[in-house]
């Protein structure tokens, strides 16, 4: 335990969030106040110039999207484990590299399976 810190270290990030949020809110409010407003049936159409919208947007999506998303989440979690390793890279040395490479090798087996099954191929 050689690293110390307090929640107050994150104050700059909180400030950054506040500035970002304030900018968005100010811009939206300012455009509503400053911008001209022209309203007509044509202007308020969903697509002002384009194909007329038909039907409902709520239709079931293909499961392929979900497969891609869940595979993304799994590799995302894998990369998250690299974060504490990267911070401790020098201290852990070769042992850390061996640990991490074992971890990645096991997941590469899954990646190979994914490629062999053509799970990311879009057209059947």
């Amino acid at each position: 335990m050689n690293s110390t810190g307090t929640p107050i270290d994150y104050l700059p990030i909180v400030l950054m969030f506040l500035v970002a949020l304030g900018f968005v809110v100010t811009t939206i409010v300012a455009t509503h106040l400053l911008g001209p407003k022209r309203k007509s049936k044509v202007k308020d159409a969903v697509f002002e110039c384009g194909i007329e919208s038909k039907g409902n947007a709520r239709f079931p999506f293909s499961v392929k999207y979900f497969l891609v998303a869940i595979l993304f989440v799994l590799f995302d979690v894998e990369v998250i484990f690299m974060y504490p390793w990267a911070v401790n890279f020098k201290e852990l040395g070769w042992l850390g590299i061996i640990e991490m490479f074992t971890f990645i090798a096991l997941l590469l087996v899954g990646f190979y399976y994914l490629m062999a099954k053509k799970a990311l191929k879009w057209e059947d």
């Binding site: 869940i70 640990e99 997941l107 087996v109 399976y113 994914l114 799970a119």
Partner: peptide
């Protein structure tokens, strides 16, 4: 930590098994 990679591997294989129909 190393076991968790096997957990992720199992989740990956399971997702592909369920979500991808065999040609």
């Amino acid at each position: 930590f190393e076991i968790s990679s096997i957990l992720l591997l199992a989740a990956m294989v399971g997702a592909i098994m369920i979500g991808k129909k065999d040609p």
